[in-house]
Write a protein that binds this DNA or RNA. Structure first.
Lengths: 257, 257
DNA sequence: ACAGAAAGCTAACATGCGTCAATAGACCTC
DNA sequence: GAGGTCTATTGACGCATGTTAGCTTTCTGT
Protein backbone atom coordinates (compact mmCIF):
# COMPACT_ATOMS: atom_id res chain seq x y z
CA UNK A 1 0.00 0.00 0.00
CA UNK A 2 2.75 2.41 0.98
CA UNK A 3 5.50 0.70 -0.90
CA UNK A 4 4.78 2.61 -4.10
CA UNK A 5 5.69 6.26 -3.83
CA UNK A 6 6.15 9.17 -6.21
CA UNK A 7 3.96 10.89 -8.69
CA UNK A 8 1.39 8.66 -10.28
CA UNK A 9 0.57 10.05 -13.68
CA UNK A 10 -2.26 7.76 -14.56
CA UNK A 11 -3.41 4.22 -13.93
CA UNK A 12 -5.85 1.53 -14.82
CA UNK A 13 -5.26 1.09 -18.56
CA UNK A 14 -4.99 -2.14 -20.50
CA UNK A 15 -1.86 -4.27 -20.79
CA UNK A 16 -0.59 -5.00 -24.25
CA UNK A 17 0.35 -8.52 -23.26
CA UNK A 18 2.72 -8.51 -26.22
CA UNK A 19 5.84 -9.18 -24.20
CA UNK A 20 4.18 -10.04 -20.92
CA UNK A 21 6.29 -12.21 -18.67
CA UNK A 22 9.31 -11.15 -20.72
CA UNK A 23 12.00 -13.74 -20.49
CA UNK A 24 9.65 -16.22 -18.91
CA UNK A 25 7.67 -16.18 -22.09
CA UNK A 26 9.17 -19.02 -24.02
CA UNK A 27 8.76 -21.39 -21.12
CA UNK A 28 5.04 -20.79 -20.83
CA UNK A 29 1.99 -21.43 -22.97
CA UNK A 30 -0.77 -18.97 -23.76
CA UNK A 31 -2.86 -20.24 -20.90
CA UNK A 32 -0.02 -19.52 -18.47
CA UNK A 33 0.44 -16.05 -19.95
CA UNK A 34 -3.24 -15.24 -19.55
CA UNK A 35 -3.00 -16.46 -16.00
CA UNK A 36 -0.09 -14.12 -15.28
CA UNK A 37 -1.88 -11.18 -16.90
CA UNK A 38 -4.80 -11.81 -14.57
CA UNK A 39 -2.47 -11.73 -11.57
CA UNK A 40 -1.71 -8.07 -12.17
CA UNK A 41 -4.08 -6.15 -9.99
CA UNK A 42 -3.08 -2.55 -10.55
CA UNK A 43 -1.06 -0.70 -13.16
CA UNK A 44 0.60 2.63 -12.51
CA UNK A 45 2.81 5.14 -14.29
CA UNK A 46 5.58 7.00 -12.53
CA UNK A 47 7.99 9.72 -13.52
CA UNK A 48 11.77 9.71 -13.81
CA UNK A 49 13.58 9.19 -10.53
CA UNK A 50 10.57 7.91 -8.61
CA UNK A 51 11.72 5.69 -5.78
CA UNK A 52 9.46 2.69 -6.20
CA UNK A 53 10.88 0.56 -3.40
CA UNK A 54 13.24 1.45 -0.61
CA UNK A 55 16.04 -0.53 1.05
CA UNK A 56 14.58 -2.13 4.14
CA UNK A 57 11.01 -2.11 2.85
CA UNK A 58 8.77 -5.02 3.77
CA UNK A 59 6.37 -5.68 0.91
CA UNK A 60 3.10 -7.49 0.50
CA UNK A 61 3.11 -7.35 -3.28
CA UNK A 62 5.58 -7.77 -6.11
CA UNK A 63 6.15 -5.42 -9.02
CA UNK A 64 6.45 -6.21 -12.71
CA UNK A 65 8.01 -3.65 -15.01
CA UNK A 66 5.76 -3.13 -18.04
CA UNK A 67 7.33 -0.11 -19.75
CA UNK A 68 10.65 1.67 -19.26
CA UNK A 69 13.72 0.89 -17.19
CA UNK A 70 14.37 0.73 -13.47
CA UNK A 71 17.65 0.70 -11.55
CA UNK A 72 18.52 -1.47 -8.59
CA UNK A 73 20.53 0.85 -6.36
CA UNK A 74 22.50 0.62 -3.13
CA UNK A 75 23.25 3.88 -1.36
CA UNK A 76 26.39 4.26 0.71
CA UNK A 77 28.09 7.40 1.91
CA UNK A 78 26.21 10.01 -0.03
CA UNK A 79 26.53 8.27 -3.33
CA UNK A 80 24.31 5.94 -5.28
CA UNK A 81 25.62 2.72 -6.81
CA UNK A 82 23.58 1.03 -9.52
CA UNK A 83 23.86 -2.75 -9.15
CA UNK A 84 21.35 -3.82 -11.80
CA UNK A 85 18.88 -2.76 -14.46
CA UNK A 86 15.54 -4.28 -15.34
CA UNK A 87 13.76 -4.13 -18.68
CA UNK A 88 10.06 -4.56 -19.52
CA UNK A 89 8.67 -7.95 -18.59
CA UNK A 90 10.96 -8.33 -15.58
CA UNK A 91 9.75 -8.76 -12.05
CA UNK A 92 11.79 -6.28 -10.03
CA UNK A 93 11.22 -7.61 -6.53
CA UNK A 94 10.26 -11.24 -6.68
CA UNK A 95 12.80 -11.74 -3.90
CA UNK A 96 10.62 -9.54 -1.69
CA UNK A 97 8.20 -12.45 -1.71
CA UNK A 98 10.64 -14.78 0.06
CA UNK A 99 12.81 -12.27 1.92
CA UNK A 100 11.30 -10.07 4.58
CA UNK A 101 13.06 -6.85 3.75
CA UNK A 102 14.71 -5.59 0.59
CA UNK A 103 18.50 -5.25 0.48
CA UNK A 104 18.42 -2.49 -2.15
CA UNK A 105 16.18 0.20 -3.63
CA UNK A 106 14.31 0.31 -6.93
CA UNK A 107 14.30 3.62 -8.78
CA UNK A 108 12.61 4.56 -12.05
CA UNK A 109 15.06 5.42 -14.83
CA UNK A 110 12.87 7.65 -16.95
CA UNK A 111 9.10 7.25 -17.04
CA UNK A 112 7.87 3.74 -16.19
CA UNK A 113 4.72 1.67 -16.21
CA UNK A 114 4.51 -1.00 -13.53
CA UNK A 115 2.05 -3.71 -12.54
CA UNK A 116 1.55 -5.11 -9.07
CA UNK A 117 0.85 -8.67 -7.97
CA UNK A 118 -0.08 -9.37 -4.36
CA UNK A 119 1.97 -11.91 -2.47
CA UNK A 120 -1.29 -13.61 -1.69
CA UNK A 121 -1.78 -14.25 -5.42
CA UNK A 122 1.80 -15.47 -5.69
CA UNK A 123 1.16 -17.96 -2.92
CA UNK A 124 -1.71 -19.32 -4.98
CA UNK A 125 0.58 -19.55 -8.00
CA UNK A 126 3.09 -21.58 -5.99
CA UNK A 127 0.33 -24.00 -5.12
CA UNK A 128 -1.61 -24.26 -8.35
CA UNK A 129 0.76 -23.51 -11.20
CA UNK A 130 4.10 -25.24 -10.75
CA UNK A 131 5.06 -24.29 -14.32
CA UNK A 132 4.78 -20.63 -13.53
CA UNK A 133 6.39 -20.98 -10.12
CA UNK A 134 9.31 -22.67 -11.80
CA UNK A 135 9.60 -19.89 -14.38
CA UNK A 136 9.63 -17.33 -11.58
CA UNK A 137 12.42 -19.14 -9.77
CA UNK A 138 14.25 -19.24 -13.09
CA UNK A 139 13.84 -15.48 -13.37
CA UNK A 140 15.51 -14.90 -10.00
CA UNK A 141 18.34 -17.25 -10.98
CA UNK A 142 18.80 -15.35 -14.22
CA UNK A 143 19.12 -12.12 -12.23
CA UNK A 144 21.87 -13.80 -10.20
CA UNK A 145 23.66 -14.85 -13.39
CA UNK A 146 23.52 -11.25 -14.64
CA UNK A 147 24.88 -10.05 -11.29
CA UNK A 148 27.85 -12.41 -11.66
CA UNK A 149 28.55 -11.10 -15.13
CA UNK A 150 28.50 -7.53 -13.84
CA UNK A 151 31.04 -8.50 -11.18
CA UNK A 152 33.31 -9.96 -13.86
CA UNK A 153 32.87 -6.90 -16.08
CA UNK A 154 33.85 -4.58 -13.24
CA UNK A 155 36.89 -6.76 -12.55
CA UNK A 156 37.99 -7.06 -16.16
CA UNK A 157 37.04 -4.06 -18.28
CA UNK A 158 37.90 -0.37 -18.32
CA UNK A 159 35.20 2.30 -18.41
CA UNK A 160 34.62 2.50 -22.19
CA UNK A 161 34.26 -1.26 -22.46
CA UNK A 162 31.96 -1.37 -19.43
CA UNK A 163 29.62 1.10 -21.09
CA UNK A 164 29.75 -0.82 -24.38
CA UNK A 165 29.03 -4.05 -22.52
CA UNK A 166 26.08 -2.49 -20.75
CA UNK A 167 24.45 -1.50 -24.01
CA UNK A 168 25.31 -4.85 -25.57
CA UNK A 169 23.53 -6.58 -22.70
CA UNK A 170 20.50 -4.32 -22.95
CA UNK A 171 20.36 -4.85 -26.70
CA UNK A 172 20.24 -8.61 -26.27
CA UNK A 173 17.70 -8.45 -23.46
CA UNK A 174 15.45 -6.17 -25.50
CA UNK A 175 15.82 -8.53 -28.47
CA UNK A 176 14.49 -11.33 -26.31
CA UNK A 177 11.27 -9.39 -25.77
CA UNK A 178 11.08 -8.02 -29.31
CA UNK A 179 11.83 -4.43 -28.40
CA UNK A 180 14.76 -3.43 -30.57
CA UNK A 181 15.01 -0.98 -33.45
CA UNK A 182 17.67 -1.45 -36.16
CA UNK A 183 20.59 0.87 -35.53
CA UNK A 184 19.87 2.37 -32.14
CA UNK A 185 19.08 1.70 -28.51
CA UNK A 186 17.13 4.41 -26.76
CA UNK A 187 17.39 4.90 -23.01
CA UNK A 188 16.79 7.82 -20.65
CA UNK A 189 20.21 7.34 -19.00
CA UNK A 190 22.34 10.35 -18.23
CA UNK A 191 26.12 10.15 -18.18
CA UNK A 192 25.84 10.24 -14.40
CA UNK A 193 23.65 7.12 -14.59
CA UNK A 194 26.28 5.42 -16.75
CA UNK A 195 28.91 6.45 -14.23
CA UNK A 196 26.94 4.98 -11.33
CA UNK A 197 26.53 1.71 -13.23
CA UNK A 198 30.20 1.46 -14.14
CA UNK A 199 31.66 2.58 -10.84
CA UNK A 200 33.46 5.60 -12.27
CA UNK A 201 33.03 9.35 -11.84
CA UNK A 202 30.62 11.26 -14.07
CA UNK A 203 33.52 13.03 -15.70
CA UNK A 204 35.24 9.80 -16.52
CA UNK A 205 32.00 8.41 -17.94
CA UNK A 206 32.05 11.42 -20.22
CA UNK A 207 35.60 10.59 -21.33
CA UNK A 208 34.56 6.99 -21.93
CA UNK A 209 31.59 8.02 -24.07
CA UNK A 210 33.97 10.26 -25.99
CA UNK A 211 36.35 7.38 -26.57
CA UNK A 212 33.59 5.14 -27.95
CA UNK A 213 32.71 7.96 -30.33
CA UNK A 214 36.34 8.50 -31.31
CA UNK A 215 36.88 4.81 -31.94
CA UNK A 216 33.75 4.66 -34.08
CA UNK A 217 32.28 1.93 -31.88
CA UNK A 218 29.15 3.89 -31.00
CA UNK A 219 27.71 7.35 -30.65
CA UNK A 220 25.91 7.91 -27.33
CA UNK A 221 23.82 11.03 -27.02
CA UNK A 222 21.69 11.63 -23.94
CA UNK A 223 21.38 7.94 -23.26
CA UNK A 224 20.54 6.94 -26.81
CA UNK A 225 23.15 4.78 -28.49
CA UNK A 226 23.63 4.68 -32.26
CA UNK A 227 25.78 2.16 -34.08
CA UNK A 228 26.02 0.71 -37.57
CA UNK A 229 27.72 -2.42 -36.35
CA UNK A 230 26.41 -4.15 -33.24
CA UNK A 231 28.78 -7.05 -33.81
CA UNK A 232 31.76 -4.75 -33.64
CA UNK A 233 30.44 -3.14 -30.47
CA UNK A 234 29.90 -6.54 -28.88
CA UNK A 235 33.35 -7.72 -29.88
CA UNK A 236 34.85 -4.53 -28.45
CA UNK A 237 33.03 -5.15 -25.15
CA UNK A 238 34.02 -8.86 -25.14
CA UNK A 239 30.31 -9.57 -24.90
CA UNK A 240 29.13 -13.18 -24.84
CA UNK A 241 25.38 -13.61 -24.41
CA UNK A 242 25.48 -17.08 -22.84
CA UNK A 243 24.85 -15.72 -19.35
CA UNK A 244 21.47 -14.37 -20.41
CA UNK A 245 20.17 -17.87 -21.21
CA UNK A 246 18.41 -16.54 -24.29
CA UNK A 247 17.96 -20.03 -25.61
CA UNK A 248 15.70 -20.81 -22.71
CA UNK A 249 17.87 -22.99 -20.56
CA UNK A 250 15.22 -23.70 -17.96
CA UNK A 251 15.09 -27.38 -17.16
CA UNK A 252 11.57 -28.35 -18.11
CA UNK A 253 12.32 -31.77 -19.49
CA UNK A 254 11.81 -33.43 -16.14
CA UNK A 255 8.77 -32.28 -14.19
CA UNK A 256 9.49 -31.66 -10.53
CA UNK A 257 5.99 -31.72 -9.17
CA UNK B 1 28.58 -38.70 -12.77
CA UNK B 2 31.31 -36.89 -14.67
CA UNK B 3 30.64 -33.49 -13.18
CA UNK B 4 33.05 -34.11 -10.33
CA UNK B 5 36.66 -34.12 -11.43
CA UNK B 6 40.03 -33.93 -9.78
CA UNK B 7 41.81 -35.99 -7.21
CA UNK B 8 39.56 -37.65 -4.71
CA UNK B 9 41.50 -38.19 -1.54
CA UNK B 10 38.96 -40.20 0.36
CA UNK B 11 35.21 -40.59 0.67
CA UNK B 12 32.39 -42.15 2.57
CA UNK B 13 32.91 -40.77 6.09
CA UNK B 14 30.31 -39.39 8.46
CA UNK B 15 28.99 -35.83 8.43
CA UNK B 16 29.24 -33.86 11.60
CA UNK B 17 25.89 -32.25 11.02
CA UNK B 18 27.01 -29.47 13.33
CA UNK B 19 26.56 -26.70 10.81
CA UNK B 20 24.67 -28.70 8.21
CA UNK B 21 22.52 -26.58 5.96
CA UNK B 22 24.54 -23.56 7.05
CA UNK B 23 22.52 -20.44 6.70
CA UNK B 24 19.34 -22.43 6.15
CA UNK B 25 19.72 -23.75 9.63
CA UNK B 26 17.69 -21.31 11.65
CA UNK B 27 14.72 -21.69 9.38
CA UNK B 28 14.51 -25.42 9.84
CA UNK B 29 13.79 -27.79 12.69
CA UNK B 30 15.80 -30.87 13.64
CA UNK B 31 13.55 -33.08 11.57
CA UNK B 32 14.24 -30.96 8.50
CA UNK B 33 17.97 -31.06 9.20
CA UNK B 34 17.96 -34.83 9.50
CA UNK B 35 16.06 -34.96 6.24
CA UNK B 36 18.69 -32.86 4.51
CA UNK B 37 21.50 -34.95 5.93
CA UNK B 38 19.86 -38.02 4.47
CA UNK B 39 19.70 -36.35 1.06
CA UNK B 40 23.48 -36.34 0.80
CA UNK B 41 24.39 -39.45 -1.09
CA UNK B 42 28.15 -39.22 -1.43
CA UNK B 43 30.88 -37.25 0.30
CA UNK B 44 34.25 -36.55 -1.29
CA UNK B 45 37.45 -34.69 -0.55
CA UNK B 46 39.36 -32.78 -3.19
CA UNK B 47 42.66 -30.93 -3.26
CA UNK B 48 43.41 -27.27 -3.84
CA UNK B 49 42.52 -25.99 -7.26
CA UNK B 50 40.32 -28.93 -8.22
CA UNK B 51 37.77 -27.84 -10.79
CA UNK B 52 34.56 -29.22 -9.32
CA UNK B 53 32.17 -27.88 -11.95
CA UNK B 54 32.83 -26.34 -15.33
CA UNK B 55 31.09 -23.51 -17.17
CA UNK B 56 28.59 -25.09 -19.52
CA UNK B 57 28.23 -28.27 -17.50
CA UNK B 58 24.84 -29.93 -17.36
CA UNK B 59 24.39 -31.55 -13.97
CA UNK B 60 22.12 -34.17 -12.50
CA UNK B 61 23.11 -33.50 -8.91
CA UNK B 62 23.82 -30.54 -6.68
CA UNK B 63 26.81 -30.00 -4.43
CA UNK B 64 26.94 -28.86 -0.82
CA UNK B 65 30.20 -27.57 0.57
CA UNK B 66 30.96 -29.27 3.87
CA UNK B 67 34.53 -28.15 4.60
CA UNK B 68 36.76 -25.49 3.09
CA UNK B 69 36.14 -22.75 0.55
CA UNK B 70 35.25 -22.76 -3.12
CA UNK B 71 35.42 -19.97 -5.70
CA UNK B 72 32.83 -19.17 -8.33
CA UNK B 73 34.94 -18.19 -11.35
CA UNK B 74 34.35 -16.85 -14.84
CA UNK B 75 37.21 -17.20 -17.29
CA UNK B 76 37.71 -14.66 -20.05
CA UNK B 77 40.74 -13.96 -22.15
CA UNK B 78 43.33 -16.03 -20.34
CA UNK B 79 42.48 -14.70 -16.95
CA UNK B 80 40.26 -15.92 -14.15
CA UNK B 81 37.77 -13.66 -12.39
CA UNK B 82 36.38 -14.73 -9.03
CA UNK B 83 32.74 -13.67 -8.76
CA UNK B 84 31.84 -15.35 -5.47
CA UNK B 85 32.99 -17.47 -2.55
CA UNK B 86 31.10 -20.16 -0.69
CA UNK B 87 31.66 -21.28 2.89
CA UNK B 88 30.74 -24.57 4.59
CA UNK B 89 27.02 -25.27 4.63
CA UNK B 90 26.40 -23.55 1.29
CA UNK B 91 24.98 -25.26 -1.74
CA UNK B 92 27.27 -24.23 -4.58
CA UNK B 93 25.10 -25.12 -7.55
CA UNK B 94 21.48 -25.17 -6.57
CA UNK B 95 20.86 -23.14 -9.71
CA UNK B 96 22.06 -26.11 -11.73
CA UNK B 97 18.83 -27.76 -10.64
CA UNK B 98 16.67 -25.19 -12.45
CA UNK B 99 19.06 -24.07 -15.19
CA UNK B 100 20.27 -26.48 -17.80
CA UNK B 101 23.88 -25.38 -17.98
CA UNK B 102 26.10 -23.53 -15.54
CA UNK B 103 27.17 -19.96 -16.33
CA UNK B 104 30.38 -20.20 -14.30
CA UNK B 105 32.87 -22.68 -12.85
CA UNK B 106 33.36 -23.90 -9.29
CA UNK B 107 36.96 -24.34 -8.12
CA UNK B 108 38.26 -25.58 -4.77
CA UNK B 109 40.18 -22.94 -2.81
CA UNK B 110 42.37 -25.16 -0.69
CA UNK B 111 41.29 -28.67 0.30
CA UNK B 112 37.52 -29.18 0.40
CA UNK B 113 34.95 -31.70 1.50
CA UNK B 114 31.74 -31.78 -0.53
CA UNK B 115 28.46 -33.69 -0.44
CA UNK B 116 26.24 -34.49 -3.41
CA UNK B 117 22.46 -34.53 -3.67
CA UNK B 118 20.81 -35.91 -6.80
CA UNK B 119 18.36 -33.69 -8.62
CA UNK B 120 15.92 -36.57 -8.34
CA UNK B 121 16.05 -36.21 -4.55
CA UNK B 122 15.63 -32.46 -4.86
CA UNK B 123 12.51 -32.99 -6.94
CA UNK B 124 11.11 -35.05 -4.09
CA UNK B 125 12.00 -32.28 -1.64
CA UNK B 126 10.10 -29.77 -3.75
CA UNK B 127 7.06 -31.98 -3.55
CA UNK B 128 7.15 -33.20 0.01
CA UNK B 129 8.96 -30.60 2.07
CA UNK B 130 7.85 -27.07 1.22
CA UNK B 131 9.73 -25.74 4.25
CA UNK B 132 13.01 -27.00 2.91
CA UNK B 133 12.22 -26.01 -0.67
CA UNK B 134 11.54 -22.51 0.58
CA UNK B 135 14.80 -22.41 2.50
CA UNK B 136 16.64 -23.48 -0.64
CA UNK B 137 15.04 -20.72 -2.66
CA UNK B 138 16.03 -18.36 0.13
CA UNK B 139 19.62 -19.56 -0.19
CA UNK B 140 19.73 -18.70 -3.90
CA UNK B 141 18.22 -15.28 -3.16
CA UNK B 142 20.86 -14.70 -0.51
CA UNK B 143 23.56 -15.49 -3.06
CA UNK B 144 22.02 -12.84 -5.31
CA UNK B 145 22.07 -10.32 -2.46
CA UNK B 146 25.76 -11.04 -1.89
CA UNK B 147 26.42 -10.62 -5.63
CA UNK B 148 24.80 -7.19 -5.52
CA UNK B 149 26.98 -6.17 -2.60
CA UNK B 150 30.09 -7.29 -4.46
CA UNK B 151 29.03 -5.12 -7.40
CA UNK B 152 28.65 -2.14 -5.09
CA UNK B 153 32.00 -2.84 -3.42
CA UNK B 154 33.77 -2.96 -6.78
CA UNK B 155 32.11 0.31 -7.73
CA UNK B 156 32.82 2.08 -4.46
CA UNK B 157 35.99 0.89 -2.78
CA UNK B 158 39.69 0.85 -3.61
CA UNK B 159 41.76 -2.30 -3.39
CA UNK B 160 42.71 -2.22 0.32
CA UNK B 161 39.09 -1.64 1.34
CA UNK B 162 37.88 -4.37 -1.01
CA UNK B 163 40.18 -6.87 0.67
CA UNK B 164 39.11 -5.71 4.12
CA UNK B 165 35.47 -6.00 3.09
CA UNK B 166 36.01 -9.49 1.78
CA UNK B 167 37.40 -10.68 5.11
CA UNK B 168 34.69 -8.82 7.00
CA UNK B 169 32.06 -10.64 4.96
CA UNK B 170 33.71 -14.01 5.48
CA UNK B 171 34.03 -13.35 9.20
CA UNK B 172 30.30 -12.68 9.49
CA UNK B 173 29.35 -15.65 7.33
CA UNK B 174 31.56 -17.94 9.39
CA UNK B 175 30.06 -16.54 12.58
CA UNK B 176 26.64 -17.54 11.32
CA UNK B 177 27.78 -21.15 11.17
CA UNK B 178 29.85 -21.00 14.35
CA UNK B 179 33.21 -21.30 12.67
CA UNK B 180 35.21 -18.33 13.90
CA UNK B 181 38.25 -18.12 16.14
CA UNK B 182 38.91 -14.99 18.21
CA UNK B 183 41.54 -12.86 16.54
CA UNK B 184 42.07 -14.48 13.19
CA UNK B 185 40.47 -15.74 10.03
CA UNK B 186 42.31 -18.54 8.31
CA UNK B 187 42.00 -19.09 4.58
CA UNK B 188 44.13 -20.77 1.93
CA UNK B 189 43.94 -17.69 -0.35
CA UNK B 190 47.07 -16.48 -2.10
CA UNK B 191 47.54 -12.82 -2.98
CA UNK B 192 46.72 -13.80 -6.55
CA UNK B 193 43.38 -15.14 -5.31
CA UNK B 194 42.71 -11.85 -3.53
CA UNK B 195 43.63 -10.02 -6.72
CA UNK B 196 41.20 -12.11 -8.78
CA UNK B 197 38.43 -11.40 -6.28
CA UNK B 198 39.07 -7.67 -6.19
CA UNK B 199 39.68 -7.14 -9.88
CA UNK B 200 43.22 -5.86 -9.46
CA UNK B 201 46.65 -7.20 -10.43
CA UNK B 202 48.51 -9.52 -8.09
CA UNK B 203 51.12 -6.85 -7.53
CA UNK B 204 48.52 -4.32 -6.57
CA UNK B 205 46.91 -6.83 -4.22
CA UNK B 206 50.32 -7.06 -2.58
CA UNK B 207 50.42 -3.29 -2.18
CA UNK B 208 46.90 -3.35 -0.72
CA UNK B 209 47.85 -6.03 1.81
CA UNK B 210 50.86 -3.90 2.68
CA UNK B 211 48.68 -0.87 3.23
CA UNK B 212 46.34 -2.76 5.59
CA UNK B 213 49.41 -3.81 7.54
CA UNK B 214 50.82 -0.28 7.56
CA UNK B 215 47.52 1.21 8.72
CA UNK B 216 47.30 -1.35 11.50
CA UNK B 217 43.93 -2.56 10.22
CA UNK B 218 45.01 -6.15 9.74
CA UNK B 219 47.96 -8.39 9.09
CA UNK B 220 47.42 -10.84 6.23
CA UNK B 221 49.97 -13.62 5.84
CA UNK B 222 49.44 -16.31 3.23
CA UNK B 223 45.67 -15.90 3.33
CA UNK B 224 45.39 -15.85 7.11
CA UNK B 225 44.18 -12.55 8.53
CA UNK B 226 45.03 -11.38 12.04
CA UNK B 227 43.42 -8.42 13.75
CA UNK B 228 42.86 -7.23 17.31
CA UNK B 229 39.89 -5.12 16.32
CA UNK B 230 37.31 -6.55 13.97
CA UNK B 231 35.09 -3.50 14.50
CA UNK B 232 37.81 -1.21 13.25
CA UNK B 233 38.40 -3.42 10.21
CA UNK B 234 34.69 -3.44 9.43
CA UNK B 235 34.43 0.31 9.81
CA UNK B 236 37.44 0.75 7.54
CA UNK B 237 35.76 -1.44 4.90
CA UNK B 238 32.39 0.35 5.36
CA UNK B 239 30.97 -3.08 6.11
CA UNK B 240 27.28 -3.39 6.95
CA UNK B 241 26.06 -6.95 7.46
CA UNK B 242 22.41 -6.35 6.56
CA UNK B 243 22.80 -7.89 3.11
CA UNK B 244 23.71 -11.25 4.66
CA UNK B 245 20.30 -11.55 6.34
CA UNK B 246 21.92 -12.97 9.43
CA UNK B 247 18.78 -12.37 11.44
CA UNK B 248 16.98 -14.89 9.30
CA UNK B 249 14.81 -12.69 7.15
CA UNK B 250 13.05 -15.52 5.39
CA UNK B 251 9.32 -14.95 5.28
CA UNK B 252 7.94 -17.94 7.11
CA UNK B 253 5.08 -16.20 8.87
CA UNK B 254 2.66 -16.94 6.08
CA UNK B 255 2.78 -20.45 4.69
CA UNK B 256 2.70 -20.57 0.92
CA UNK B 257 1.69 -24.16 0.39
C1' DA C 1 11.54 34.18 -26.78
C1' DC C 2 13.59 34.02 -22.53
C1' DA C 3 15.67 32.44 -18.17
C1' DG C 4 16.96 28.96 -15.24
C1' DA C 5 18.21 24.28 -14.61
C1' DA C 6 20.10 20.08 -16.01
C1' DA C 7 23.29 17.70 -18.75
C1' DG C 8 27.39 17.49 -21.38
C1' DC C 9 32.14 18.84 -22.25
C1' DT C 10 37.18 20.38 -21.51
C1' DA C 11 41.56 21.22 -19.10
C1' DA C 12 44.98 20.60 -15.29
C1' DC C 13 46.70 18.11 -11.82
C1' DA C 14 46.77 14.22 -8.19
C1' DT C 15 46.21 9.40 -7.14
C1' DG C 16 45.14 4.46 -8.04
C1' DC C 17 46.49 0.79 -10.59
C1' DG C 18 48.96 -1.99 -14.44
C1' DT C 19 53.20 -3.57 -16.18
C1' DC C 20 57.89 -4.98 -16.27
C1' DA C 21 61.96 -6.38 -14.00
C1' DA C 22 64.33 -8.08 -10.28
C1' DT C 23 64.82 -10.03 -5.61
C1' DA C 24 63.66 -12.41 -1.36
C1' DG C 25 61.23 -15.66 1.36
C1' DA C 26 58.48 -19.93 1.94
C1' DC C 27 57.41 -24.54 0.82
C1' DC C 28 58.26 -29.00 -1.55
C1' DT C 29 60.89 -32.83 -3.29
C1' DC C 30 64.56 -35.60 -3.36
C1' DG D 1 70.06 -29.65 3.14
C1' DA D 2 70.16 -28.35 -1.87
C1' DG D 3 67.62 -27.06 -5.66
C1' DG D 4 63.37 -25.76 -7.66
C1' DT D 5 58.91 -23.69 -7.61
C1' DC D 6 55.40 -21.00 -5.88
C1' DT D 7 54.44 -16.85 -3.34
C1' DA D 8 55.48 -12.40 -1.56
C1' DT D 9 57.88 -8.01 -2.09
C1' DT D 10 60.06 -3.77 -4.02
C1' DG D 11 61.04 -0.02 -7.45
C1' DA D 12 60.30 2.54 -11.76
C1' DC D 13 57.39 4.14 -15.12
C1' DG D 14 52.96 4.80 -17.77
C1' DC D 15 48.02 4.72 -18.24
C1' DA D 16 43.34 4.89 -16.06
C1' DT D 17 40.64 7.34 -13.18
C1' DG D 18 39.37 10.99 -9.46
C1' DT D 19 38.95 15.83 -8.36
C1' DT D 20 38.23 20.60 -9.00
C1' DA D 21 36.91 24.29 -11.78
C1' DG D 22 34.78 26.50 -15.47
C1' DC D 23 32.38 26.55 -19.64
C1' DT D 24 28.80 25.19 -23.34
C1' DT D 25 24.79 22.92 -24.90
C1' DT D 26 20.21 21.22 -24.37
C1' DC D 27 15.98 20.92 -22.05
C1' DT D 28 12.05 22.92 -19.60
C1' DG D 29 8.76 26.09 -17.91
C1' DT D 30 6.75 30.45 -18.52
Amino acid sequence: MDAIRGDIRSSDFPLTGEFLAGRLREHLDQDDLNYIEDLIETVEEHGDGTRLLETGDVTNKSTMLIEGYVFRTIESGDRRYIVGIQVPGDFVDLHGFALKRLDHSIVAAGPVKIGSVSHESLRTVMQDRPNIARAMWFATLLDASIHRKWIQILEQLDAPKRIAHLYAELHTRLELIGRTVPRALRTPFTQLDLADMCGVSAIHANRAVGKLRELGVAEIRRGDLYTDDWDRLKRYARFNADYLYGDGALKLDEGWN
